[in-house]
């Protein structure tokens, strides 16, 4: 029985992956649709990265700091060193990871609320510093960023989509492997009870820092991918909404799970776009607020837990 279910899941996964890969083939090169999908993929990477940090019990309210740093570093080095964006995004990621470790050092001893405030503060500090360094970052004007694939190439948007898809799949698989590894188990133990984890001989500092570094790395890559898609970066990239979206996506999809951030990003984006067609604005945010509250209270494991809930109530 159990084996069957796993097989079904695997089947759905494989079929869906194939579908995702042939979307451009079925529907032709539809630039609008691919743009929407690309932005969704960026946020899938971003939310998954945020969720990994949350797995260690550390909820960041300022992940836009890493998103923006990744973007800026990647834009700056493509412009000054002439590196191709596909290489530069990893440099951006590494730099974000480096900053992540520094921030992690200040945070690891802190309790959840303190950590939330301090990370929130780091996004504000990153914003201030960026605008005060116009010679490097272009200040408020921002700087252009090379497109991931040059627009002179025919159907560049399709290649962009495939690159994003590959990176997203790779990131999700890596994060999946990490959570199944020693590190994932350690992080879970730390989240459940830090003191106990310590007694069990888990090096809490090391694993918490690792979570920070890996999460910041992937977040930096997501930020770099986004700005290389947009072709321009401005300090708006540090906005509060950019910090909060991955939280909303992860919680509604399912915290601490692999599928949660993915499902959450897609469902919320979908709801968001539909509400947009009705011309609602504040109502959309009110709905987001209500969804968050209801999910935290009634569905703490997010949307991915619905099937199991149904199963349990109808055995």
């Amino acid at each position: 029985m159990k084996l069957d279910r796993i097989n079904i899941k695997t089947g759905i996964g494989i079929v869906s992956l194939i579908l995702a890969f042939i979307v451009p083939v079925i529907l032709g090169i539809n630039q609008y649709l691919l743009t929407v999908l690309i932005i969704t993929l960026v946020f899938i990477i971003y939310s998954s990265a945020w969720n990994l940090l949350a797995l260690s019990g550390q909820a960041s309210l300022g992940h836009a700091a890493f998103f923006g740093i990744g973007g800026y570093v990647s834009a700056i080095i493509t412009n000054s060193l002439g590196l191709p964006p596909i290489v530069a995004i990893f440099v951006g990621g590494f730099f974000a990871a480096f900053i992540g470790i520094l921030i992690g050092f200040t945070c690891i001893r802190m309790r959840e609320w303190f950590l939330a405030m301090v990370t929130f503060g780091f996004a504000i500090i990153a914003h201030t510093i960026t605008t005060e360094l116009p010679w490097l970052t272009g200040g408020w004007d921002g700087i252009p960023a090379k497109r991931l694939i040059s627009v002179t190439i025919t159907n560049y948007i399709m290649y962009e989509y495939y690159i994003m898809l590959l990176i997203a799949v790779a990131v999700v698989v890596i994060i999946y492997q990490l959570t199944k590894s020693r590190m994932g188990l350690a992080l879970e133990a730390i989240r459940e009870n830090e003191l106990e984890a310590k007694v069990m001989g888990i090096n809490v500092t090391k694993y918490k820092l690792m979570a920070f570094a890996v999460s910041a790395f992937f977040t930096g890559i997501a930020g770099a991918l986004e700005i290389h898609h947009f072709g321009y970066i401005t300090p708006e990239v540090y906005g509060m909404d950019i910090s909060f979206w991955p939280i909303i996506y992860s919680i509604s999809g399912g915290l601490f799970t692999i599928g949660g951030p993915i499902l959450g990003t897609i469902v919320i984006t979908f709801i968001w776009e539909i509400l947009r067609t009705f011309g609602l604005m504040y109502e959309r945010f009110i709905l987001i607020g209500v969804i968050l509250i209801l999910i935290v209270i009634f569905l703490p494991r997010g949307l991915v837990s619905i099937p199991e809930k149904i199963k349990r109530s109808h055995p």
Partner: peptide, 12 residues
């Protein structure tokens, strides 16, 4: 993981 992929791509 795969189930979520399924939902992901179905929605896509």
């Amino acid at each position: 993981m795969n189930k979520k992929y399924g939902i992901l791509f179905a929605v896509l």
